[in-house]
Design a protein around this nucleic acid. Sequence first.
DNA 1: CTATAAACCTGCTGGC
DNA 2: TGCCAGCAGGTTTATA
Length: 273
Amino acid sequence: MPELPEVEYVARQLRKELVGHRIRATVVSWPRSVSGLDPAEFATRMRDRLVDSVDRRGKYLLFALDDGNTLVVHRRMSGNLVLSPPAAADGYIRVAFALDDGRQLLYSDPRKFGRLALLEPGKLAARFAALGPEPLGDEFTPAVLGEQLAGRRRGLKMLLLDQLVVAGLGNIYADEALYRARLHPLRHGSDLTLEEVAALHAAIQGVLRTGIQHGGTTFGRHRDAYDEAGTNLDHLMVYRKTGLSCPHCGTPIQRIVVAQRGTHFCPSCQQLP
DNA sequence: CTATAAACCTGCTGGC
DNA sequence: TGCCAGCAGGTTTATA
């Protein structure tokens, strides 16, 4: 499940590999993977475009093209962007881009949830205007996090998953951040002390940096641009560790369901007041 | 504002 | 061992 670390890691790889290269032919084999455009029109607009830059915003990958438009990719649950040749076809290729040097950029997505869109500058700005702050950016300070949580009666788990509160956290890193900050997932956003907000801020940045450092968390299908699995699974403390001992106190990790999502925490280290 | 649920999909797990 | 129901989760849309 690509979250910020998985997207950031791939963005860094693709920046190195794609900037300065042109896209030649585009083949869309699952039309719904492209949103907002007819697949044939999408292929036409992509033809001979030069990749000027590769960036990330939240869980979105952004490829700035030389005609001023931006290719936006969200991998959702099972999408991967992989450079060929890794024995190429895995049977789930939804979109394939042929590059000017013979390589291919393949979008593989078994569950077909991910989306590729081609956006003009105005639409790009509108799309991301409401998105929350970048948790690893300079603008994300404890005070900013405090503002985002102030007056919110929702639980912390829900708030952290809300991309308008903070951009890029998903189920894995939300659980890990709350564990690291020792905060119960059902604590109300508005109830935190200044110290707790500061701890959560540090925890969010910590778990994300750790994730990037280890190439992301591969639970099943996530692969980087070179088709390699990430190793951050070895560094998770609570996510999908129900019944296993808390690394800090030994209490069995508990699983509850919050907003239809599995939520893992230590009932001893993370208590409700 | 907040909460809840369904829809989009397919691979994998677990219960029998 | 084999089958199949249901789980898994990011986002959008709909409903209350």
